[in-house]
């Protein structure tokens, strides 16, 4: 449903991405794994339409959305909840931007809050919520913006380890329920193996997608998956491929 075709990006003489091809199917979770500064975020900016590539195109359900923001939901490591809006009003933003009346937008948000584990937090301010809850609110906002594809740029890397693994489980679960497709940026190999159906390695300068790993077993996976020999084998292969 989401297709990135032959995308190259350069800033002046600095070639950041070269001939990147990527597809994301319905309900799939694909990770882009690479070192920091390797062009991962640039790739996301292209997909979200904030940046127009030097060449290549981005297709969503066959429609060309290259350089046109407003089609694909985007979520960053920072939750980017606006401190001066309540949780409800933060999540309602994408609806308001689309011209949905305020009352109706708030109603829609309130309906979805329990599903995201945010029951009773609608009227609270972002500072009153824990990091995990704030990330969930940010995800609800992303989801209300586009209910099909989410771009997540290291969304869980600012959370503490325990909250983070709880968020992993929660994310996989909600993704299944709302039938979301996810393109996930991370530099954490364990996180990528744990969550992904496929992992694409972005390496080199300019960055290219050099290898792809298909991770089995299919989701939902056993909670002990990270302790298995298979998991370690993936990890070993990926580390070898990156360095």
């Amino acid at each position: 449903m989401l297709e990135v075709k032959n995308v190259s990006v350069s800033f002046g003489d600095n070639h950041v991405l070269e001939d990147v091809n990527l597809t994301l199917g319905k309900g799939e979770l694909v990770s882009v794994l690479g070192v920091s500064g390797g062009g991962k975020t640039t790739l996301f900016n292209v997909i979200s339409g904030l940046l127009t590539p030097r060449q290549g195109s981005v297709l969503l359900d066959g429609e060309d959305i290259t350089g046109r923001p407003g089609h694909v939901g985007y979520m960053l490591q920072k939750d980017m909840l606006l401190p001066y809006r309540t949780i409800e009003d933060n999540c309602a933003l994408p609806l308001l931007l689309r011209g949905v009346p305020k009352k109706e937008a708030r109603r829609q948000v309130r309906e979805r809050l329990p599903e995201f584990g945010l029951e009773g937090t609608g009227r609270k301010w972002p500072v009153q919520l824990s990091g995990g809850m704030r990330q969930r609110a940010a995800l609800l906002r992303t989801h209300l913006f586009s209910d099909n594809v989410a771009l997540l740029d290291e969304p869980f890397s600012a959370l503490d380890t325990l909250t983070r693994s709880a968020m992993h489980r929660w994310y996989l679960d909600i993704m299944e329920r709302i039938r979301l497709s996810t393109l996930f940026i991370t530099h954490d190999i364990d996180e990528a193996i744990l969550l992904s159906d496929r992992i694409c390695l972005l390496t080199g300068h300019p960055g290219r997608l050099t290898r792809e790993f298909v991770i089995s077993p299919a989701r939902p996976r056993d909670p002990d998956f990270p302790m298995t020999q298979e998991f370690l084998e993936y990890k070993r292969q990926i580390r070898a491929a990156i360095s």
Partner: peptide, 18 residues
């Protein structure tokens, strides 16, 4: 005003006025 917040809104298709 937070540049990332502005980018986020732009990614959601917000115009200058919004």
């Amino acid at each position: 005003a937070d540049a990332d917040a502005i980018n986020l809104l732009r990614s959601m298709g917000a115009g200058k006025l919004q």
